[in-house]
Simulated scan of single mutants.
Amino acid sequence: MHVDLQPKMMIRDVHIADRPRERLIRQGAESLSNQELIAILLRTGTRKESVLVLANRVLSSFDKIQDLKDVTIEELTTINGVGEAKAVQLLAAAEIGKRLYQKHSERRYTIRSPEDAAAYLMTDMSSLKQEHFVVLFLNVKNEVLHKQTIFIGSLNSAIVHPREIYREAVKRSAASIICSHNHPSGNPAPSPEDIEVTRRLIEAGLIMGIELVDHIIIGDHKFISLQEKGYM
Score class of each variant (00 low, 15 high):
residue 226 L to Q: 12
residue 109 Y to C: 01
residue 59 L to I: 09
residue 136 L to S: 00
residue 55 A to G: 14
residue 98 K to D: 02
residue 173 S to P: 02
residue 222 K to I: 03
residue 28 G to Y: 00
residue 104 H to R: 13
residue 32 L to I: 11
residue 84 E to R: 13
residue 218 I to L: 07
residue 188 P to R: 10
residue 125 M to L: 14
residue 224 I to T: 12
residue 165 I to G: 04
residue 195 I to G: 10
residue 181 H to Y: 03
residue 159 I to S: 15
residue 158 A to L: 07
residue 46 T to Y: 08
residue 47 R to C: 04
residue 216 I to K: 03
residue 179 C to A: 09
residue 2 H to L: 01
residue 151 F to H: 13
residue 201 L to E: 06
residue 113 S to W: 09
residue 192 P to Q: 00
residue 190 P to V: 05
residue 15 H to L: 04
residue 135 V to G: 05
residue 66 Q to V: 08
residue 34 N to D: 12
residue 114 P to C: 00
residue 211 E to H: 07
residue 13 D to F: 04
residue 231 Y to L: 07
residue 164 E to H: 11
residue 132 H to I: 07
residue 27 Q to P: 02
residue 135 V to T: 15
residue 61 S to H: 14
residue 190 P to Y: 04
residue 56 N to G: 14
residue 94 A to L: 10
residue 42 L to W: 12
residue 133 F to I: 02
residue 224 I to E: 08
residue 173 S to F: 00
residue 222 K to W: 00
residue 6 Q to L: 10
residue 18 D to C: 00
residue 64 K to I: 02
residue 231 Y to M: 06
residue 144 V to I: 15
residue 173 S to N: 09
residue 102 Q to P: 03
residue 28 G to D: 05
residue 141 K to N: 09
residue 131 E to Y: 00
residue 16 I to W: 10
residue 12 R to H: 10
residue 232 M to L: 09
residue 122 M to K: 11
residue 163 R to N: 06
residue 35 Q to I: 12
residue 166 Y to E: 00
residue 79 I to Q: 12
residue 91 L to R: 12
residue 32 L to F: 08
residue 179 C to R: 00
residue 24 L to D: 08
residue 171 K to R: 15
residue 159 I to T: 15
residue 103 K to H: 10
residue 165 I to H: 00
residue 124 D to I: 04
residue 130 Q to P: 01
residue 214 D to P: 10
residue 110 T to A: 06
residue 7 P to R: 07
residue 31 S to T: 14
residue 213 V to T: 13
residue 224 I to A: 02
residue 41 L to K: 09
residue 96 I to K: 15
residue 106 E to D: 05
residue 62 F to H: 11
residue 224 I to R: 11
residue 25 I to M: 11
residue 180 S to L: 06
residue 39 A to K: 07
residue 188 P to S: 05
residue 81 G to K: 13
residue 72 T to F: 08
residue 128 L to H: 09
residue 59 L to R: 03
residue 210 I to G: 03
residue 12 R to S: 03
residue 135 V to C: 11
residue 112 R to T: 10
residue 113 S to I: 12
residue 214 D to F: 07
residue 226 L to V: 11
residue 128 L to G: 07
residue 24 L to E: 11
residue 160 V to Q: 01
residue 13 D to K: 02
residue 217 I to V: 14
